[in-house]
Write a protein that binds this DNA or RNA. Structure first.
Lengths: 154, 154
DNA sequence: GACAATCAGTACCACTCTGGTACAGTTTCG
DNA sequence: CGAAACTGTACCAGAGTGGTACTGATTGTC
């Protein structure tokens, strides 16, 4: 269906929230209540973000999560990789558990080179957008050039 | 999962195949056998393409489908609209059956403006890629500028 | 005119993924 | 000790996906 899952969406929201309160310890409850989202979902995604090393956690009373990194060093692409898992627009380049290609007509497929180019362009665009951009809600003006470069090299 | 469905993928492949044999009447069976894909799937997607007006159909013996349009006038965006249906990266801008927004915190949501910008940029990129590009397997070099323009206006 | 090839339409099903919930455990502070 | 908060795991209902089946309509050929 060509859309990110809600869990991923929640993760981006939570990360932005923490980034805006950089250094503060924020409970999952606070995030959930701010966005009016179910607490168990928010805790689930915050656990994942902690697992991925994007946020720090602190247990116990007055515990919570803290964003202590550099918002300009974390990209949307990295967050999507963690939250959404490995993804590709089409399975052309995806591999199964044993590392071999899923698509059986891969080498002969006329759309592969093209779709993988689009795939790379989109991923490249995501990699040019930092958490700082997300938190500000503004688009960096240099995105286009990187996206163009990715398309040229397909 | 952020990927197009297999049916959509099949549809793009079938359209490319027909575009390469422009004017010829090609049976669903031939397309299915060429790509080693299940015939019922190909017929299903070809019906959809016919319904959408992208290909012509001819029944009976020696019948099949024909692409008779201008490959440079049909865009990947149009094909995705038909095959994938209405889509958005996030539900921010999506509406329910009665036309009102799905997202309850839409106006207050800090990620909306940003995600909808990315959304538009990707859609714009898809709209710049024509069926002729797809069939050639090459990326048009002007894509970047349109994508950039879409991002600036968010 | 019978028959086969082919498209048209619809219905159905097994499987997977998604969104959400539940619950028992661990840590920390007062 | 008890409450607040994170950790880990398991579970479930609903939706979506990929695929199949079947009946009907159209058309060319023998």
């Amino acid at each position: 269906m060509l859309k990110i899952s809600k869990l991923t969406d929640y993760g981006l929201l939570a990360t932005m929230y923490l980034a805006r309160k950089q250094g503060e310890v924020v409970s999952a409850r606070e995030v959930a209540e701010f966005y009016h989202l179910p607490l168990p979902m928010i805790t689930k995604v915050l656990k994942a973000l902690h697992h991925g090393g994007f946020v720090e956690s602190r247990r116990g009373v007055a515990g919570g999560y803290t964003f202590a990194g550099d918002p300009t060093a974390i990209t949307l692409g990295q967050l999507l990789d963690l939250l959404e898992g490995p993804w590709d627009l089409v399975e052309c380049e995806s591999t199964n558990d044993s590392g071999s290609a899923i698509c059986s007509i891969r080498t002969a497929c006329p759309s592969r080179r093209f779709m993988s180019g689009i795939n790379r362009a989109i991923k490249s665009a995501f990699d040019q957008i930092t958490l700082a951009d997300l938190a500000r809600g503004e688009m960096p003006m240099s995105v286009d050039k990187k996206m163009f470069a990715a398309m040229e090299t397909m």
